[in-house]
Design a protein around this nucleic acid. Structure first.
Length: 939
RNA sequence: GGGCGGUUAGCUCAGUUGGUUAGAGCAGGACCUUUACACGGUCAAGGUCGGGGGUUCGAGUCCCUCAUCGCCCACCA
C-alpha cells in the first residue's frame, strides 16, 4: 500500500544518488544519434538562484526527453572560475585576517584561492543536484582546470600568430578599486545628478574687442569633469559651427597651468550641446582619445591606478583623490576668475559591475582580440540558418551587435585567472641592443607568445641570437585573461580540445544551447566565433533564449533588494518537482516572467494530485487483478473487446497528449508541454476517466486502461517532474526495483492498428465530450434551482432528430432515417446508468427532439437536457415564494430607477457609485425576467 | 540617439500560418467533508484583447498611427 501522503523530501533524497551511482546520466559515444548540451557554467562562487533554476529546468526537460527518446545524450556540467568574483571573495576573507593579497604575494594568494575553491567551490554543484539535473557528473569541468587552461593558452597563441591578438595603447574603462580594466559591458551606466562647470579658456593673442568681431577674449568650455583639466591637450568645435569658425587654428591658454593648447575642429562635437566647445582630454575620455588620435594630440595621463592625481596633474594636485582634486580645481578656477557659472545636469555615470566604484577612463596598455574577422563567419552561420535562434527574433539582436562589434579587451589586472602566455626579457638583461621592456608606456618591447615558457625561451633565443638565455631571464606578463576568454571555448574545451578525443568527435557540435538573453553578447556570440574559428563548425545548432525571472513587481531579483526567491527554500517547502513544474508552467520563452512564492503551489498541488491518483489506481489494481490484460507496460496492449465510449475516449486523449507533447517539445515550447501534460493528467485522467472508472460497467477492462494511460502520463511527466514519477512508477509496480523511468521509452501514442482495433476515433471522442457537456448542464441547472446535492432528480434528454447536433450519425447518437431524422437509437443501458449517476439522476429518459417540456433546460451538443423539478418543490409554495421575490424586486427597481432619474444624484455622486447603481438595476431586472419565466412553470 | 519587446479577466500569463461563442492558473463567489485527493470536487461569474484608422467575407492575430510601460546597445563633453 502506498503511504497516505507523498514524502517528496524522502523520494528526492533517495532517487538522485541512485541515478547518479548507476550512471544513468552518463553515456559513451556510440552509433546512435547524439543530443548534447553544455550547461552555462555558473560562477564557482555562486549559489543557486531562480535564474539557474529556470535555465537548468529547461535544459533538464529537454535532456531527459531526448534521453527517453533513445538519443545518446550528454549534458555536460561545470563551473566558471569567475576571475574578479572569486578573487573578491578570497580577498574579503583575507581582510578579516587583516591582510591584503599583496601581503601574501601572487603564488601564496593563488594557493589560498585554490584552497577556497576546494572547500567551497562545490556549493552550487551540490545545489544543482537538488534540482534533479541529469548532468553527466563524470564529465564535470572547470574553466580553470588543466585541460581548459591548455585550450586557453593554445587559443591565445594561435590568435597571436594569426595577428588577431595584439597589445595596444588604449583608453579603457578602469575600476580604481578593483585595479583592473573593465570591458564595456562590465560597466553599468546609472543616472547621476551632476554639474556642468562653465570655464573660460583665454585666447592667446586675441585682441580684446577687435572692431566688428563678436568674439571675446576667451572661449567658454562646459565640462562635467573639471579635475581632468590638467590633461587637456586641445579644445574642439564643430567644423560647421559658424560661431567659432574663426577660432580654429588659434591657441588658448589652459587655465591654472598656463599651457597653450590648440583649438581644433572635429565632427564629434555637438553644436547644440553645452557651449559647443569641448575640452579634449585624450588620456581620460574615450571620445577625446579618438579625437586625439585623429589630430595627433598628446595624451597626458594625470592619474594613478587608484584614481589619485599624479605629478603630471601639477604639483598642487599631485596625490589628491580625484574628487578632492575636482573640488580644489573648481575652487582655484573660481579664484582665478576662470569659472563662469555652474549648472545642474543629469547625466549617466559608469560604475564597476562588481564593486560599483565610479569607472575612470584611463590610458593603458592592454591585450585585445580583433573581432571583425571572427564575427563575419559567425554572422554568416546564423544568416544561413545553420544555427538557429529560438525564438527567432533574438537573431536580430545578435546581428546588431555582431555587425558593430568592437575589439575585445581581454587583459585583466587580476591574479586569479589564466595568465597571459606572453613573456618578456627581464629589463636587466642586455641582449645586444634590444632591451626587454613591458612598461605601459614603453616602446620597442620584445614579446614572446607561446603555450609554454620553454617555447617562449626558444623563441627568445632565436630572436636575440643569445643562446645563453634561461627561463630565469624571462618574465611572464603579469595580467590574466578575461573570464570569458575561457568560457568562449566551453563547447569544445570541455570535450577534450585541443586533443582529438572521441567525445569531441562525437558530441561536437552540441545540439542546443539554453541561456538567458543577458549573455548573448558576453558568451553566446563569442562561443560562435571561437567554435567556428577553431573547430571549423559552429558550436551548437540551436540557441534557445529564455526570459528572466523577475520579482512580483517586475524588478530584477536581487539579494540586496530582498525581493528574490530562493530556489532551495522553494525546494524545501514545495519539493524540487514542484519548483521545476511550476517554473516550466509559468515561464515562457518569449518574455520575462514575474513570479511570487504562491505560484509554486501549482506544482506542489499537482504532485499531490499525482500521488492521490496513483493511490486510487493501486487500490483498483488490487481489487481487479490485471492478469490477462496486457498493456504497453509489458510491450503489448490488449484490453479485450467491447470498450465503452469512455474507455475509448481516454485512449484517444492519451494518444493525443503523447503526440502533442512530442511535437511541442520539438519546438522548445516547454510551457505548452507542461500545460498539455497537466491537462491530460488532471482534466482527462483525474476529472474525466477516474470518475468514470469508479462506476465503469466493465471495471476490470477500465482499470487496465487506466493503468496503461497512467503509465504513459508518468513518462510524459518525467522530464518535468523526475522524482515523483520515478517513485510512483515503482510504487505501482510499473518498474522493477533495478529499473528507472529515466531510461524508459518516451510515449509516442498508440499505433493506427491499435486505435482501429479499439474503435478509438475522433467521433467517439467528440461524443463523450458532448455527453459530459450534458452532465455539466444538469449540474448547472441543479445549482441554479438549488436542488440539494443529496436529492436524486429526473432528467430528460431530447436529442437526435432536430438536426442541431453535430453528432448525428454517431452509432450512439442515432442514425438519420432515409427521409430525415429518425428516432435516436437508445444508449446502451450500462451507459445510461453511468450517465445518470454522474447527474445524480434517478432516471434519464430520452425524448424526441423538439419536445417542448415545461421544465428548465439547457441546449448542449448532446441534445437538449431537461431537469424535472417535479416532486422537488411544492408548486404552490414555490409560486408564492416567487411572487414575494417579485414584489420585493419591484420595490427595489422602482426606487433605484427614481434615484437614477434624479439629476443631482447622477451629477454629483462619484461615477463608480452611479455605475454600480445602474448595474444593480439591470441585474435585478434580469432576475425579474427569470423569475417570471419560472413562475409560468408553476402556474 | 539606435535597436528590440510588452499592453488580452482583479493578478500572472497562454492564444502557432487571420477562421465558430478569446483560454489557463491564482485570487474572489456559491455549493459540497461523496470511501484517491479540501494541496480536493462541482458550478457560476469575470474580457468593447491599450486608443484610433486601414486591408479582408472575417482581425486579439496583418498594415499604419498614437499612447503607455519595459529591456538592450551607444552615449552628451
Amino acid at each position: 500500500m502506498m503511504d497516505k501522503h507523498y514524502d517528496a523530501k524522502a523520494a528526492e533524497a533517495k532517487w538522485y544518488p541512485i541515478w547518479e551511482k548507476n550512471g544513468y546520466f552518463h553515456q559513451e559515444p556510440d552509433g546512435r544519434e547524439h543530443y548534447s548540451v553544455v550547461i552555462p557554467p555558473p560562477n564557482v562562487t555562486g549559489i543557486l538562484h531562480m535564474g539557474h533554476a529556470l535555465n537548468q529546468t529547461i535544459q533538464d526537460i529537454l535532456v531527459r526527453w531526448r534521453r527517453m527518446q533513445g538519443k545518446n545524450t550528454l549534458w555536460l556540467p561545470g563551473t566558471d572560475h569567475a576571475g574578479i568574483a572569486t578573487q573578491n571573495v578570497v580577498e574579503k576573507a583575507l581582510k578579516k585576517e587583516g591582510k591584503r593579497r599583496q601581503d601574501l604575494g601572487r603564488e601564496k594568494f593563488l594557493e589560498r584561492v585554490w584552497e577556497w575553491k576546494k572547500q567551497y567551490g562545490g556549493t552550487i554543484v551540490h545545489q544543482q543536484r537538488m534540482l534533479g539535473n541529469s548532468t553527466d557528473w563524470q564529465r564535470e569541468r572547470f574553466t580553470f582546470d588543466e585541460g581548459c587552461s591548455r585550450a586557453v593558452a593554445k587559443v591565445f597563441t594561435q590568435l597571436y600568430n594569426e595577428g588577431l591578438v595584439y597589445k595596444g595603447n588604449y583608453i579603457v574603462n578602469w575600476c580604481p578599486r578593483c585595479g583592473t580594466a573593465l570591458a564595456n559591458d562590465e560597466v553599468e551606466h546609472e543616472p547621476n545628478h551632476g554639474h556642468f562647470w562653465y570655464i573660460r579658456y583665454p585666447v592667446v593673442g586675441s585682441a580684446k574687442g577687435a572692431a566688428g568681431e563678436p568674439y571675446k577674449d576667451y572661449v567658454m568650455v562646459a565640462t562635467t569633469r573639471p579635475e581632468t583639466l590638467p590633461g587637456d591637450t586641445a579644445v574642439a568645435v564643430n567644423p560647421k559651427d559658424d560661431r567659432y569658425a574663426h577660432l580654429v587654428g588659434k591657441t588658448v591658454i589652459l587655465p591654472l597651468t598656463g599651457r597653450e593648447i590648440p583649438v581644433i575642429s572635429d565632427d564629434y562635437v555637438d553644436r547644440e550641446f553645452g557651449t559647443g566647445i569641448v575640452k579634449i582630454t585624450p588620456a581620460h575620455d574615450p571620445n577625446d582619445f579618438l579625437v586625439g588620435k585623429r589630430h595627433g594630440l598628446a595624451e597626458i595621463n594625470i592619474m594613478t591606478d587608484d584614481a589619485h592625481m599624479n605629478e603630471l596633474a601639477g604639483e598642487k594636485y599631485c596625490g589628491m583623490d580625484r574628487w578632492e582634486c575636482r573640488k580644489a580645481i573648481v575652487d582655484d578656477l573660481e579664484a582665478g576668475g576662470f569659472l563662469d557659472h555652474i549648472e545642474d545636469i543629469d547625466n549617466q555615470v559608469g560604475h564597476c559591475y562588481r564593486c560599483h566604484e565610479t569607472v575612470e577612463s584611463r590610458l593603458s596598455k592592454q591585450w585585445f582580440v580583433k573581432m571583425k574577422p571572427l564575427a563575419e563567419p559567425a554572422i554568416a552561420a546564423v544568416k544561413s540558418g545553420e544555427v538557429k535562434f529560438v525564438p527567432e527574433r533574438w537573431s536580430k539582436i545578435y546581428f546588431n551587435w555582431m555587425e558593430n562589434i568592437q575589439d575585445w579587451c581581454i587583459s585583466r589586472q587580476l591574479w586569479w585567472g589564466h595568465r597571459i602566455p606572453a613573456y618578456y626579457l627581464k629589463k636587466t638583461i642586455s641582449t645586444g641592443g634590444v632591451r626587454g621592456d613591458h612598461s605601459p608606456s614603453g616602446s620597442g618591447e620584445m614579446v614572446f607568445v607561446a603555450e609554454t615558457a620553454e617555447e617562449a625561451l626558444a623563441q627568445a633565443k632565436a630572436k636575440t641570437g643569445n643562446a645563453a638565455l634561461t627561463l630565469a631571464d624571462l618574465e611572464q606578463d603579469p595580467d590574466v585573461l578575461d573570464t570569458w576568454f575561457s568560457s568562449w571555448l566551453w563547447p569544445f574545451s570541455t570535450l577534450g580540445w585541443p586533443e582529438k578525443t572521441k567525445d569531441l568527435e562525437y558530441y561536437y557540435p552540441t545540439t542546443d544551447l539554453v541561456t538567458a538573453q543577458d549573455i548573448i553578447f558576453f558568451w553566446v556570440a563569442r562561443m560562435m566565433m571561437a567554435g567556428i574559428h577553431f573547430m571549423k563548425k559552429p558550436p551548437f545548432r540551436n540557441i534557445v533564449i529564455h526570459g528572466i525571472v523577475r520579482a512580483a513587481d517586475g524588478s530584477k531579483m536581487s539579494k540586496s533588494k530582498g525581493n528574490s526567491l530562493d530556489p532551495l527554500e522553494l525546494i524545501d517547502q514545495y519539493s524540487a518537482d514542484a519548483l521545476r513544474f511550476s517554473i516550466a508552467l509559468i515561464t515562457s520563452l518569449e518574455c520575462d516572467t514575474k513570479v511570487n512564492k504562491e505560484k509554486f503551489e501549482i506544482g506542489r498541488n499537482f504532485t499531490t494530485k499525482i500521488w492521490n491518483a496513483a493511490k486510487f489506481l493501486q487500490m483498483q489494481m488490487e481489487a481487479f487483478p490485471q492478469e490477462g490484460f496486457g498493456s504497453s507496460i509489458d510491450g503489448q496492449t490488449a484490453f479485450g473487446q467491447s470498450l465503452s465510449a469512455d474507455d475509448r475516449h481516454i485512449l484517444y486523449a492519451a494518444d493525443l497528449a503523447c503526440r502533442k507533447v512530442n511535437e511541442i517539445l520539438e519546438a522548445y515550447r516547454i510551457q505548452d508541454g507542461a500545460l498539455a501534460v497537466y491537462d491530460f493528467f488532471w482534466t482527462q485522467i483525474c476529472d474525466g476517466y477516474v470518475e468514470y472508472v469508479k462506476d465503469s460497467p466493465n471495471k476490470a477492462v477500465s482499470v487496465a486502461i487506466l493503468r496503461d494511460v497512467f503509465w504513459k502520463a508518468l513518462r510524459l511527466l518525467h522530464p518535468y517532474m523526475p522524482f515523483v514519477t520515478e517513485e510512483v512508477a515503482h510504487q505501482l509496480g510499473f518498474l522493477k526495483e533495478d529499473e528507472t523511468i529515466m531510461l524508459q521509452k518516451f510515449p509516442e501514442g498508440y499505433t493506427d492498428a491499435e486505435k482501429a482495433a479499439w474503435g478509438v476515433t475522433e467521433e467517439n471522442y467528440d461524443f463523450v465530450n458532448a455527453k459530459r457537456e450534458a452532465i455539466t448542464a444538469i449540474r448547472a441547472l441543479r445549482a441554479e434551482y438549488k436542488v440539494p446535492p443529496a436529492t436524486w432528480v429526473k432528467v430528460t434528454v431530447a436529442r437526435g432528430t432536430d438536426g442541431s447536433s453535430p453528432l448525428l450519425g454517431h452509432p450512439l447518437c442515432g442514425q438519420p432515417a432515409a427521409g430525415g431524422y429518425g428516432a435516436p437509437a437508445p444508449l446502451p443501458a450500462d451507459e445510461v446508468k453511468v450517465l445518470a449517476k454522474a447527474m445524480r439522476a434517478e432516471s434519464v429518459e430520452f425524448a424526441p427532439a423538439g419536445s417542448d417540456l415545461a421544465m428548465p433546460s439547457k441546449i448542449t451538443k448532446f441534445g437538449t437536457v431537461y431537469l424535472s423539478l417535479e416532486g422537488l418543490v411544492d408548486k404552490a409554495a414555490e409560486s408564492k415564494r416567487i411572487a414575494g421575490e417579485l414584489a420585493k424586486l419591484a420595490g427595489f427597481i422602482k426606487s433605484s430607477e427614481a434615484k437614477l432619474a434624479n439629476e443631482n444624484f447622477v451629477a454629483h455622486a462619484p461615477d463608480a457609485v452611479v455605475a454600480e447603481a445602474r448595474r444593480k438595476l439591470a441585474e435585478n431586472k434580469e432576475k425579474v425576467a427569470q423569475l417570471e419565466k419560472l413562475a409560468k412553470l408553476f402556474a
